[in-house]
Design a binder for these strands. Sequence first.
DNA 1: ACATATTTTTAGATTGGTCTAAAAATATGT
DNA 2: ACATATTTTTAGACCAATCTAAAAATATGT
Lengths: 219, 219
Amino acid sequence: MISQTEENYLKAIFKLSEKSNQPVNTNAIAHEVNTAAASVTDMAKRLAKNGYINYERYKGVTLTTKGDEIAKKLIRKHRLWEVFLFDKLNFTWDEVHDIAEQLEHIQSEELVDRMDKLLGHPKFDPHGDPIPDKQGVFTQREQRPISEMAKSETGVIVGVREHSKPFLQYLERFHLVLGTRIEVLEIFDYDGSMKILTEEHGEKIITQKVANNLFVSLG
Amino acid sequence: MISQTEENYLKAIFKLSEKSNQPVNTNAIAHEVNTAAASVTDMAKRLAKNGYINYERYKGVTLTTKGDEIAKKLIRKHRLWEVFLFDKLNFTWDEVHDIAEQLEHIQSEELVDRMDKLLGHPKFDPHGDPIPDKQGVFTQREQRPISEMAKSETGVIVGVREHSKPFLQYLERFHLVLGTRIEVLEIFDYDGSMKILTEEHGEKIITQKVANNLFVSLG
DNA sequence: ACATATTTTTAGATTGGTCTAAAAATATGT
DNA sequence: ACATATTTTTAGACCAATCTAAAAATATGT
Ligand SMILES: [Mn+2]
Ligand SMILES: [Mn+2]
Ligand SMILES: [Mn+2]
Ligand SMILES: [Mn+2]
């Protein structure tokens, strides 16, 4: 049986593989799982020995099919639990992640399937991240950061790039939550800030940082 | 932070303390948590060092207030999760225990409170075992095994003494589930078996073993 | 009471997961 | 190309949790 620690490493490697396509290097993993690089090397040997990753000294690691499947299952479980916490227990979107970090390690295929059904087979979690299906397939969606929108374009907020508590609480505070329809009124080249119009809460100025971390679906 | 292993030991000690009132001895714990006696001795030292139990060499162990509280919280979580799995996800009463064994270790006071609310503050789990409230108080209930009922007495099945999968499946098969009203028609002194009448499924003969492991609330 | 049986503890080893400090390999800049 | 910086691995140690085998303490029976 795979341990929670091993699972966390696989998830970290998966996450880091997503954006680079390159083998994932030791330091990156160390940073992601919050350990010393030496510990990562030890774990890499173990994961390789058990067939979860391909590892060559000094060359970084990649997931095997087996490791990839486990990582996707973890993400599926994590995001389904987030939906449960959000939809059924009314936790806020800045609270769900920490609890889901624990719940994602519960081992029961049947439980996952039934949760999925109970929740109505959701395709996205409370942060707008896609939930892979039983086969590990992620729903693709046309989305771009608000910062890439042109003047007078409209769209609906569908996700966040940054997942930090402060950012999520900030968004909540200013009613910039998932499902909010916005229109770009003005773009200030000086500092990249933007004036936007929301249906329910009027005009707002958002900084470039915010605009860059909020995804919209155009139209 | 207390580990899952330590939690399991505390739960085992609590369970064993319930029936004996005496300090719990090493072998009993070893049997309960499925380890070697030597491992229990090691763990006893650690749990004592951390203030969860009182331990004196060769004298057995008792829970401290701190240890007792943790054990009760574990039982509360375990049984609430069982209710969730049974009520909301339609697992059967022989399936819920194994998954709850994992879920009971999730650390979040808030989660427990909200689950409790979602489930309607249940007082008993799917096996009829009492769920302690937030303060650790168990609901008391008048109950006795069917084997102690007199002829022509009536009652409602409210719990099981044995929790094994085979027994639970056996009961399901013969419709002897919680809430079933029964009347004792005849008692066979020869082997302790009994003839009972159920409202929905007619007359049945049950063995002494079954009669002894099924609790009813009289009236 | 004393020999025997049972229970419990200790001794010593193993495995998973972690660390720091030092060594080795790789990358980078002029 | 070579010195320097960075990254990665190794070496050696530690802690939690476990085991088996042997020793010590306690319980039991006649
Ligand atoms: Mn999350
Ligand atoms: Mn999420
Ligand atoms: Mn149970
Ligand atoms: Mn139960």
